[in-house]
Amino acid sequence: MTLEEKIAAIDAATGHGEFMTDDIIGEGTLKNKIICGCRTGYMFKLNNLSYRGVWISTLENIRLKVDGEEVSHNDMSIQLRDFLCNVDETGNNTDVFWAAKDELWVIVNKVGGLSAGEHTLEIEVSKRNDFGHSFGEAEEGYVERALEFQHPATGRQTIICRIEEA
């Protein structure tokens, strides 16, 4: 084994350490969004990234490529129960809590949805910690040492998903 292969094996066995799970996309959840027979896009579930739930506002970025093509943020939203917002607006929603068992869907607007068959999804999620050991008063901003809040963790996954019926 090369060094890179060994490191990959260590990480695969012990986690990459960024989030609770390296499996960001819910397996088998990719499907087209069909409203009254109209295909307006596609959607898939995200697995919860924490053992205790996540504030939506801590999600700093979600990047998605489908079959090698970057999805525009203009077309990408998240839905949690009855809450829906564009991915660029998560930071402004400081009172929305994604509980451990809540279903969070990523919804992509795309007329016609995805074709039946296999698709390669590449996702990158960046989020800062919900809590940590750094502390202070709000007016101070984040102190320099508050790395868990200053520097978001980033998790990545590439997965082949299947649309059974377009």
Binding site: F135, A138, E140
Partner: peptide, 17 residues
């Protein structure tokens, strides 16, 4: 319970919170 200082980007929680 926790003190979720990550909730607001760029600042810790206020005492009132």
């Amino acid at each position: 319970i926790y003190v979720d200082s990550g909730k607001h980007k760029g600042r810790f929680t206020r005492e009132a919170e």
